[in-house]
Design a binder for these strands. Structure first.
Length: 424
RNA sequence: GGAGAGAUGGCCGAGCCGGUCGAAGGCGCUCGCCUGCUAAGCGAGUAGGGGGUGAAAACUCCCUCGAGGGUUCGAAUCCCUCUCUCUCCGCCA
């Protein structure tokens, strides 16, 4: 959520931001409503002031055994006017809030302006694509041939877009989770967190999934609970409503969770394989930082995620998302795209974003500097470190061998009972 | 699931026979004094959010004592609903 005062004072800036995101919109209605509301608020405050002072006088008069029925009658009228005004203001407030909740974050100045993913900027390419002396297969073909992925049975158990890992497939998935968590907690300074996999509506609203993107989520019937679409939601909400000592910043969390997404509107896209599932595993990195450090922290976060790919020996590139492709809550996002030889394509495997104070304002996450008065909103960031299912897919495609086996990256072998390859 | 207790400022904790209580006291923190250094001691200050005036410092008003309603001229204090926490019983991995 943007600061209503910022929107009021920088209407042009916000409108330009919306335009760059491909959502042209006139905000003068909002600004007018906002000033109307403030005017009403001022007169309400005046009435309340009158009531407060007169009520105190009544108390004193009563102590002196004086008659107060006339003043009380008058105050009852004032009370009615207060109630009316409160009602009106509450309505306007709600309308304002509803508008504000639907306005996305303002992109950072360094974000390239563009319409869609075709305007994203590749900022670096790391490593080389592997060469094969045979035709590399898709990961689902590799996995099904090895008996480690079974989409047919997953569909029987649940439905389309669910994974079923068997044997070394399940072990490799678990090894990746283990490896990523170890890397981030021991080398990158993150604290490990294992949060709830369901969250309430308040949490979903704080991080920006609600109210606008309800159709992307799975809801628990009969409860105000939702399945998490990413660990970003429970982990960012760890500090919702809190005031953090600035000395404690930056706070780094690493969390494994499964992620549940309805993938509404993606019919016919990536229908096969592990790329687009209703349920997938992810290790997420979340940061709470002082505002002036957040862009440095974004670069570090990105590096932390890249390290996973480097250690695994996977070829990838880093892309800066343009304004048109930027997520709702994000001010700046880097995507990491891993090379998938079976598909001859780069596929997103991580997304690292700086939300600035957008989520912190929705979730009321503040910090206090020692000895200083007041508080300020922290900046929040998060990034996948990495999407585990897609990483497993990348391993199957990049390290497949002519005989159908898949080489196990060296760093994973300790978690794979020393196995050098997965064989049929 | 049944019975009971509770939720107050950064933390602990009074208040809860309605009125000068946004709130005693303590801890913590900040500034000053004191002091070979440190500790202790002494004094002052110290919740958050919003509005108005002001260049600013500041001043001033309103709201907030788990959340939401209600009673009242007036609610941390009384009533109702909800959420969460704790204790006992039952059940359960």
């Amino acid at each position: 959520m943007l600061d209503p005062r910022f929107v009021r004072e920088n209407q042009q800036v916000v409108e330009t931001a919306l335009k760059n995101r491909g959502q042209e919109r006139d905000l003068s209605g909002f600004v007018a409503l906002e000033s109307e509301k403030r005017a009403l608020q001022t007169s309400l405050d005046g009435l309340r002031h009158e009531r407060n002072t007169v009520s105190q006088q009544i108390g004193k008069l009563k102590k002196e055994k004086k008659d107060t029925t006339d003043i009380q009658r008058k105050m009852r009228e004032v009370g009615d006017r207060i109630k009316d005004l409160e009602q009106t203001i509450a309505e306007k407030d709600e309308a304002l809030k509803a508008l504000l909740m639907e306005i996305p974050n303002v992109p950072h100045a360094s974000v390239p302006i563009g319409a869609d993913e075709n305007d994203n900027q590749v900022c670096r390419t790391v490593g080389e694509p592997p060469s094969f002396d045979f035709e590399p297969k898709n990961h689902w073909d590799v996995g099904e041939a090895l008996g480690i992925l079974d989409f047919e049975r997953a569909a029987k158990i649940t439905g389309a877009r669910f994974p079923l890992y068997m044997g070394d497939g399940a072990r490799l998935e678990r090894a990746l989770i283990w490896f990523m968590l170890e890397l981030h907690t021991t080398r990158h300074g993150y604290k490990e967190v294992l949060p709830p996999f369901m969250v309430n509506s308040a949490s979903m609203t704080a991080t920006g999934q609600l109210p606008k993107f309800e159709e992307d989520l799975f809801k628990i019937s009969g409860w105000d609970y939702w399945l998490v679409p990413t660990a970003e939601v429970p982990v960012t909400n760890i500090h919702a409503g809190e005031i953090i000592d600035e000395d404690a910043l930056p706070i780094y969390y690493a969390a494994y969770t499964p992620c549940f997404r309805s993938e509404a509107g993606s019919y016919g896209k990536d229908t096969r394989g592990l790329i687009r599932q209703h349920q997938f595993n992810k290790v997420e990195l979340v940061k709470f930082v002082a505002p002036e450090t957040s862009y440095d922290e974004l670069e570090k976060l990105l590096e932390n995620a890249e390290t996973v790919l480097k250690e695994l020996g996977l070829h990838y590139r880093v892309v800066t998302l343009c304004t048109g492709d930027l997520g709702f809550s994000s001010a700046k996002t880097y995507d990491i795209e891993v090379w998938m030889p079976g598909q001859q394509k780069y596929r997103e495997i991580s997304s690292c974003s700086n939300f600035e104070d957008f989520q912190a304002r929705r979730g009321n996450i503040r910090a206090r500097q020692k000895g200083k008065k007041g508080t300020r909103l922290v900046h929040t960031l998060n990034g996948s470190g990495l999407a585990v299912g897609r990483t497993l897919a990348a391993i199957l495609e990049n390290f497949q061998q002519a005989d159908g086996s898949v080489a196990v990256p060296e760093v994973l072998r300790p978690y794979m009972q020393g196995k050098e390859a997965i064989t049929p």
